[in-house]
Every structure is written in structure tokens, then in C-alpha cells.
Design a binder for these strands. Sequence first.
DNA 1: ATATAAGCGAGACGGTACGTCAAGTCTTATC
DNA 2: GATAAGACTTGACGTACCGTCTCGCTTATAT
Lengths: 211, 211, 211, 211
Amino acid sequence: MAVQKSAQPAKSVPDSTRRSEKSRRAIYDAALALVVEVGYPKTTIEGIAARAGVGKQTIYRWWSSKADVLMEAFLDLGERPLGEVKPEPYAFPDTGDVAADVKDVLRATVDQLRDPRFEAPSRALAAEGVVNEQLGRELVAKLMQPSLDLYIGRLRAAQEAGQVRPDVDPRIALEFFVSPLAQRWLQHTGPISYEYTDTLVDYALQGLAPR
Amino acid sequence: MAVQKSAQPAKSVPDSTRRSEKSRRAIYDAALALVVEVGYPKTTIEGIAARAGVGKQTIYRWWSSKADVLMEAFLDLGERPLGEVKPEPYAFPDTGDVAADVKDVLRATVDQLRDPRFEAPSRALAAEGVVNEQLGRELVAKLMQPSLDLYIGRLRAAQEAGQVRPDVDPRIALEFFVSPLAQRWLQHTGPISYEYTDTLVDYALQGLAPR
Amino acid sequence: MAVQKSAQPAKSVPDSTRRSEKSRRAIYDAALALVVEVGYPKTTIEGIAARAGVGKQTIYRWWSSKADVLMEAFLDLGERPLGEVKPEPYAFPDTGDVAADVKDVLRATVDQLRDPRFEAPSRALAAEGVVNEQLGRELVAKLMQPSLDLYIGRLRAAQEAGQVRPDVDPRIALEFFVSPLAQRWLQHTGPISYEYTDTLVDYALQGLAPR
Amino acid sequence: MAVQKSAQPAKSVPDSTRRSEKSRRAIYDAALALVVEVGYPKTTIEGIAARAGVGKQTIYRWWSSKADVLMEAFLDLGERPLGEVKPEPYAFPDTGDVAADVKDVLRATVDQLRDPRFEAPSRALAAEGVVNEQLGRELVAKLMQPSLDLYIGRLRAAQEAGQVRPDVDPRIALEFFVSPLAQRWLQHTGPISYEYTDTLVDYALQGLAPR
DNA sequence: ATATAAGCGAGACGGTACGTCAAGTCTTATC
DNA sequence: GATAAGACTTGACGTACCGTCTCGCTTATAT
């Protein structure tokens, strides 16, 4: 069967090799700054373009929506070599004590959730993701899954060390650590503190029922 | 002391006794229908007014924003005598078996989360709440807290019955049941099923660590 | 046969009884001023709206194009009670001497063609009319025909007085007076002066061939 | 005297000896075709470039504006060896009968004005010329004057032959033949036909006043 | 014969204006 | 006095072109 010769005379994808790196950075910076300064709903494509000193078309050429720009800007922020903001540790500590290790990581997450540079854009993206499933899945895959995989790895190690029951599914177990914190943060259902996350770890590991 | 003569020549609060009940219902119906049909972002005040056969001003007179309209509409939906959609059971079952009771309620919640009449407006409201703290807190207070309180009540009963450790804080414990489900639903981090919620209950009650 | 009940749910024509007279005048003034100041091509709908202190939509609601706005503005200019600019005398002089009368009117036309308030908008409209037949015909009907009819009337009177051959078609004859001047003005094919228009009248009445 | 070493580091005029003839033709063809197909206002530099398979810069290098391109394309059309469209006869007939000769030429002009290949571009250029005096004068000089000079020549001959009064200025006399037709065509003030142009010649030569 | 510099195609860029949509305010007429 | 209707100003949307600017590629002398 012959390969489809692709007769689209259509919009012709832009040539990314000729893309202006300078403009891209300026757009990332403008988007993040505006979200922090005026909030996501009042952040407009026009505003980003103006602040970045860029034509609107340069944004529309490379991104499909405000949320798309912000997501890339936010991802880029995490990859910045400066180490300014690291969304998550790139390796999960393993001291042999699961409880301590998970508490450690959760405390770091609490810190991050309180960092204002992080909060505004990530709330905006999370909100978009709630309503827009496609973007939501992209966010999960690109921003959250890498961190969640580290939890899974650590829990597997704990299972091998006999600290976690072998019949427990680590992909569900991790939610006991992560989801309550996530919900408190997302829905303002409660305060966030080291004490709280520590408690979560203790409760989850020991269970709620008396032994 | 003289009665304040109310010298505000300003916006003068509208007289709610003269409010048109018919218009209010029409606005609720239009808002909910539009959110389901075209999605929250494409639901506009103008659209609601047009569909409800109502002047825009009638909306602006009584509500402060699109989210505000939708929240009231959604609350109203839950209070409808028809019982079409019940956000949550008004009483938590208590058969003596906490695990079974919680699993029951969670299965009902799973059903609700999948009801399309429920999903569109509640996602929209949840998304707004992520980004708008004030509205978020209102949502929690009006929509979620009543249900959460029922969990607390049931867990306290379980503590008294010796099925749950007495030193456990029920306000945190309930998050093990509710938050993972909430996060999967909000962030599309995973599938939702009876099996899943049942597993949550088992894991949470027994704990992750081996006995 | 029943009258069509007009089932157009369409754009719904705006209600002209509620139209803002103030905005209309401001738009006319802005349009005319801009055409004079920056020229027709650089006159934009946005510019007119901004200058008139009016929303763009108010322009788009009532007019279909820049040319349409300008045409109405220009027509309005002629109807202004101030008599600032009269496109043409409302009555053609009739002293009994056709030559003198026509020369008179043509001299007035020369004056008008040189009035800068008149020149910019009428050139712009004329140019549009060359390329856009529909608009061109509208211009002729609304702006030129009334004046041309006066020529016809005067020429008919001259025929009755025996000063013009009775077999001559006045609708063609008037072009000898008007068209050469029009072409010189439109196409910059030659200078415009009283002497020139006087000559036109003499040549046309006497003919080019010797007697 | 030393030759100016041309120390302008500036725009450096392009070297016309290296110009691509193929591109020029393609641009002419594209410009004319687009004006006919979509009309002058919707004909864009980008569109011409795309259709001609040419970079935009190649157009900007050699022409200063859309009107400039079109004018050259149109002039070129007239000079094409194919004789497809001849703007005007290169010699004015002289049979000894001025009336007949002028009628002949005018009939040819009428034919031309109706040729669609001619109409779209020449209307576009004429419209530009109305508003842009510089371009208008260029048009007159390059496109019209050669033809008008032929009229002048023929009228001079007629004066010598005693068919036209010697005191008549041929540069004005020719306008009686040409301007009414031009105005009808430019402004859509009336229909164009052989009968009409014949009548013009008769009226103009005999005069309007009875002998 | 080969360097080298111009014209060239392509198209990304910073901009301006387009014509549309909706927000929130204001006015009018109706009930 | 609340309402339905809808005109108003404002401002953002996403698109189309403008005129400028690189980028490789070809091509045609000038070494």
C-alpha cells in the first residue's frame, strides 16, 4: 500500500529551526511574570506579547492557547540550569527508613507549594486541567508523573525491605501521601504544614484501625 | 439614638422581595444547561440571559459573576425537591461495619462523579475554586463540608466502637478516603471505579506497613 | 397569500430609534477630520472610533465599511444647516444667458474642488467608487445626480429659449461642461481654473468646427 | 574629476543586471491575474509573491508598492509583442474626415474599456491615481499622454485642413471626446456605447448652440 | 577553476488593523 | 421598582498583511 503523499496545502507547520530563541525566552518570562502579577484570568495573549516585545503572531505560531504557553513556560522554569525552582527532587532519598524519607519529600513539596513563583502558575494550570481533560493529562504526564514515579520506586524498595506489605499497589499507596496534600492545596479544604504531612505518613503506614 | 437614614445614594441594594422567582429559575436552568452543552468557558452571561429570556441586568443585579450564578444554580439543583441529583446522602449509613459503610458511600460518590449533569458544572466550579480562593472556600463550605461532616461523624462512631484508633484525627482520616478519589477526578491522574475506592478503604484502615 | 413571518433568528437589525445621535455626529466628525489629516488609506475604523470616543462595535453596528461611514459623513456635511460647505447651489441661475449662467456655476464648482475640507473626502470616495461599482452608483445618485439635474433643467430652458439646439440631449450636453473638469480633477490631467471652465463653455456652445 | 566612489554603506541599490527576468514576469502575471480574480483590494504583496513562487523580498527589492507593481505589470502588458491588448492605436487614422476618424478611435476605446483583462487593473490604477497624485501623474504620463498626443496631432491636422476652428486649443478640444467617456467609465455615471461616443463627436464638432 | 558576493525562495519576526465577541454599564419602555 | 431589551464603551480575541530581517541556495562574474 502506497504511503499517503499528504496533499495538505494547509497551514504548513512553521520551521522550528528558524525559531527565535530570544523571543521564546521573553514570552516565557512575560507569561510567568504576568500570571504572578495580575493573575491568570487577566493574563492575556496580547499582554504577554506586549510585555515580551513580540508580535502576537509569534505566540500563535508556536502555541495554541494561553494555557499552552504557560505550561511550556512552567516546564522550562523547572529545567532552568539555575536550579531556582525545582519542582521535585530528581532522586528520592533512601535512608532505609521509608517514613522519614517520604516525610522529607513531602516537606519539600510543602515548601514548594508555598513558593509564590510556583503557586500562581501552577494553580492556573491545575485549574485549566480540571476543565480541559487533554491539557490535564498533559500536565500529569509532564509535570507530575516523573515525581510520582519516584514515589513508586521508593515504595517498591520499601516493599523489598519488608517495610511495606508486598500486596500493596504502590501506585495507589502513594496517593495516601500525595492526594490529601494535593486536595488541601487545590481546594483550600485545609491548612498545609509539615506537621500535617508528617501525620499523613504516620497514619498511612500504620493504618487507621487498631492492631 | 436616631435610626441611620441610610444616606447612600449609591448602588442601592435591590429589593429582594420584588424579585422575580420565574427569572431566577430560568437563569439557573439556562446556566446549568449551557455549561453542560457548550462548556463553562463558552458559557457567557449574555448566553445565559438570552436562553433564560431575561435581561442581562437582571443577572448583574443579583449575582456578581458567572461563577456565582453557577454556584447558586448548582446548590439549588441539590435542593430541588425532585431529588434528581443528590450531591451526597443526607445521612451516612451505619451498619456497624465502617469499612462497608464507607465503601458504600464512596461508590455512591463514584456514581455521582460520572453523572454528566453533575460533572460539567462541578468541574467548572472546582476549577474556579482552584484559582479563586474566596470562591473556593465558599464551595467547600456550602458544597463539600456537609458531606465531610458526615464522614467525621461516622468515623467518630467507629472510634467509639473500637474500629478506628482513638488517637486518629477523623478530619485527617477522612482524607484517605476522599482525597485520592478527588485528585483522580480533578486532575485525571487515574481511573475511577468501585474497585479502586474499595481498595482505598482497605488500605487506609489496615495501613501500608505489615503488622 | 400569507405574509412571510420572517423566521430569521439572525443578526437582528439594530433598533435605530435607540441610536445615539451624539455618537453618530462624533463618528462623522472624526472620519472627516482623519481623512483630511492623515489621508484616506491611513484612516482606519479603529482610528475613527478612538477619535470619536466610541466603541468599534458602534461603527460596525451602523455601517458596513470605512467607505460607507465616509459617504454618510460627507452627505451629512452637505446637509448641515450651517451652509459651511454646499456641494452645489440648490438652484441654477437663470439670467437668460446660458453661457454666463453655466460659467457661473462652473466657477463655483472650481472653488469647491479646491476647498481642502471637500477635496480629501471626495477624492477618497471617488476613488472607492471607481473600483466599487455599487458604491460608485450610490455616490452618483446621492451626491452628483441632484446637481446634474439642475444642469439638465437649465439646458432645457435654454432650448425653449432657442439658445441651444432642440435636438440636443441635455443629459449628454451637460457632460461637455462637467466631464472635462471632472477628469482634470480626478486624474490630474490638467490644471483647473476659471479661464479653463469659461473656455469649455464657449467651445461647447459654439462647437469646434468653423461655421 | 574623480569618479564618486559611492561611499553609501546604506541600502545599496540592487544590481539590475543580475535581476531575474523569470521572476519579474512571474510577478507581473501573478499581479494581473490576482487583480482580475480577487480584485485590487484583496490583492496583496504576499499573495502576489506566493502565486509567483517568489520571495516577498524580491518584490520589495524592485518595487515600492502594490500600485507600483501593478502599474509596471500593466505597462508591460501593453508592450507585449503579442499584441494581445493594445491600450491605444499607435497611430491615429487620418482619412481626411476628422469626425469619422475620431469616432473610429473612440469606438476602439470603448472596446478596450469593456475588455475584462483591461478593466480590473486599469480601474485599480485609476482609483489609486485619484487619491495619490504622484502616482496619478505617472499614470497620465506613461499610460494616457501618448494617446492624447495622437488626438492633438489629429486635431492640428484638422485645423490645417480647415475642419476645426484655428483658434481652438486642441488640448482642450480633445477633452470633449475623451472626458465624457472617461467620466462615464470612472464614475459609472452612464452607459458606454458606440452610439454615445458618435454623438459626442457630432455635438462637439457642431456645437450646442444653433447656427 | 574557483572563490565570493549578489539575487533569490522561504518564511520568522515586530507590528497594525481587521472584524467579532463578550463584559459590564446605562437607558428606555413595559408591567 | 423590577424587568426585557438592547445600545453603549471597552478590551481581548485570533487572523491577515505589512515591511524588515535572516537563512541557505543558486548563479555569474572577478580573480
